[in-house]
Each structure stands twice: as structure tokens, then as C-alpha cells.
């Protein structure tokens, strides 16, 4: 199967990606910061003690007090207070060439903020160097409205600190920033390498041969499928392998009518607990080839596999369960195995 990346010593591994476009509500303080970034300005926030926090924070990190709304324009230039060189940038990082992650203390601020510095070459980076923002033309109200910082040309640096910057009192909000930023998009993508482990790998290798292999607990004799390599009840390792029938009984079910991104089965479908013959714990699966209103507890079903040549070490080799012509199992026999 294509999703498997390796199979060392029989242990199956596969890529596993968690990805979601989170939508972050930023609150009034960071909202103002992002609104100003959209207008091409950077603001800090003056605390009661007179320190200017940049980026602004809602609560004073020292006292925990609400910081209020004494915004002041800062920068745009500043000084690198410390940095780290990135030799091989990763896909989602701000630059596609080597760059520095740096703490930049903007002119007029008392704290430093993290951003990328596009110095071109490691030899040009040093603590204490002056930098200035490189703005994006299209700004949306996000930290990436500043593409990165770049070394300040000598002439500009000599020019002093930002000229017409407003330094005191309540800062009037930029005109083009009438509609304040309340949310930002923060897409997340985490790439894992999933390892199925010994017990699940053995089980999946069995599936690839059209066999369902459970494990029996040496202590309580219960048969688990899929096996976990241990009994959750007795906390002992399970090794004895038991081949199970691909026939079983529906112990309970639900008809799912609501979509879910991770489920490929067309709606509506019957989500069922199937107790395979010889097992002591039901598996989660789906039933098809049966009208939804005829599905019932105690109904006998059998696995429908993908064609032999498509079998692989994944549970998707079992497409679904279908009803078979056998009498129902009485409900009272299913009490313990819902």
C-alpha cells in the first residue's frame, strides 16, 4: 500500500500529517498591533511603569496587570540583540534562503521581538547591528505583513531614529485601519512518522493475507482484536496468536448522518460495533449491502474484503461488513460486549 514508507523488521511505519487552518481571535491589544501592521506601522504598548512592550501584550508579564491602551508607535528600525543562523530553511519559514532568526529591539521599545533577518550571508550578521522592516505590498493584518527585517543601509542608520514617529500619548489609529483586525489565520501542519508497533504490525501483516489475527491474554484468557500487545485489564503482555473468523455479530450501532473530514464513507452510513466470532472485544466498522432501517443488534455479518490482489497491511483491506443469512444472536448474550 502506498501510505507505508518502511517496514524494518516487520514493523510498519507510515507518514502521519496533522493539519488544520486554525482561526485565532487575537483580542483588542494584539488586534491593534495587527491592525497597525496592515497600515504599515508598528506599535508597542506602554505599561504603567513606563516600559514599552513590543509586540504589545494584554497583561504585564511582571505584574499581571491589564496593560490598557497606551499604544505608541515604535521603530521601524531597531537593533538585533541576539540571533541564530538558519542554514537550511524549512518549507513554511519566511525565507527560502539562509537567514537569521533574531530578537529585534525596535527603536522606542523596551522589549525585543522575534523575526527573520535577511542578511544574505552569515558573515553580515552580528549582535548590535541595525535592521529595518521589509514590508509586504499586500498586507492583511498579520506578523507576516513584515516579510522580514534587513540590514539598515549606513546612510539611513545615520539619519537618526525614525523621524516623524509619534512617541507619546494616545496614538490615533491609522485611517486605513478603520476595521480592526480581530482574527488571524494560523495554519498548523505537523508531520509525524507513525509506527504501528509490534502487535499492530503483526495484525496488519495478517490482514494483508486475508487473515484476522487476535491475541489471547495469558491471565484472563480474553481475546483482543486488533491486538494491542498487552491486556488493558491485566496489564500483562499478550503473545498467543489466535486466528479469528471474519464473521461476527453487531453488538450496537449508530447511523451517522453528519460529515467528518476524516471519514471517507458516503453519508448516511451505519457505524457498528462488530464482535468477531472468537473475540471478546468488538471492533469499530461499517455495514453496507443492507438498508439502514434493517440494521439491528444481534445481526450476523461478515467482512467484505478488497480483491485478493489489492490486499495490503491496512484495515482498509476490509471494506465493510455485510449481513449474512444466519439467525440473530439474542440481545442478552451481548450485554458484556457492547
Amino acid at each position: 500500500m502506498s501510505e507505508i514508507v518502511s517496514e524494518e523488521g516487520g514493523i510498519l511505519t507510515a507518514p502521519h500529517v496533522l493539519e488544520y487552518p486554525y482561526r485565532r481571535s487575537v483580542g483588542p491589544v494584539l488586534g491593534r498591533f495587527f491592525t497597525e501592521l496592515r497600515a504599515g506601522r508598528i506599535v508597542g504598548l506602554r505599561t504603567q511603569q513606563g516600559r514599552v512592550l513590543a509586540p504589545p501584550q494584554e497583561y504585564d508579564p511582571e505584574t499581571g496587570a491589564a496593560t490598557g491602551s497606551d499604544f505608541v508607535e515604535i521603530g521601524p528600525g531597531g537593533v538585533v540583540t541576539t540571533w541564530s543562523w538558519v542554514v537550511r530553511p524549512r518549507a513554511k519559514q519566511p525565507l527560502d534562503r539562509p537567514f537569521a532568526w533574531a530578537l529585534v529591539k525596535l527603536d522606542g521599545a523596551d522589549t525585543a521581538m522575534l523575526h527573520a533577518v535577511d542578511a544574505g550571508d552569515l558573515s553580515r550578521m552580528r549582535t548590535g547591528m541595525r535592521v529595518r522592516p521589509r514590508w509586504r505590498a499586500e498586507r492583511v493584518g498579520h506578523i507576516h505583513d513584515i516579510e522580514c527585517f534587513e540590514p539598515e543601509p549606513q546612510a539611513t542608520a545615520d539619519n537618526g531614529l525614525g523621524g516623524e514617529r509619534q512617541r507619546a500619548g494616545e496614538l490615533a489609529m491609522a485611517e486605513e485601519a478603520q476595521k480592526p483586525v480581530t482574527n488571524i489565520k494560523t495554519p498548523m501542519r505537523l508531520e509525524y512518522r507513525y509506527s504501528a508497533g509490534i502487535a499492530t504490525s503483526r495484525f496488519l501483516h495478517g490482514i494483508a493475507q486475508g487473515k484476522i489475527l487476535g491475541q489471547r491474554c495469558p491471565s484472563c484468557s480474553k481475546v483482543y482484536v486488533p491486538p494491542r500487545g498487552s491486556c488493558p485489564r491485566c496489564a500483562v503482555a499478550t503473545e498467543e496468536e489466535v486466528e479469528l473468523s471474519d464473521k461476527g455479530t453487531i453488538t450496537t450501532y449508530a447511523i451517522v448522518r453528519v460529515p467528518s473530514e476524516s471519514i471517507d464513507v458516503p453519508l448516511p452510513f451505519a457505524s457498528v460495533h462488530v464482535l468477531l466470532d472468537g473475540a471478546d472485544l468488538p471492533m469499530f466498522s461499517v455495514v453496507q449491502e443492507c438498508p439502514l432501517d434493517q440494521i439491528r443488534m444481534g445481526m450476523r455479518v461478515q467482512a467484505v474484503w478488497v480483491p485478493r490482489e489489492q490486499l495490503g497491511p491496512t484495515l482498509q483491506s476490509i471494506r465493510y461488513f455485510k449481513p449474512i443469512d444466519e439467525p440473530d444472536v439474542p440481545a442478552e448474550k451481548l450485554q458484556e460486549t457492547v
Partner: peptide, 9 residues
Amino acid sequence: TPLQASVVA
């Protein structure tokens, strides 16, 4: 989860 059947919504 990779290699599993996703059926619980």
C-alpha cells in the same frame, strides 16, 4: 490514523 479504518465520527 494511518493503516486504520476511520469510522467513528
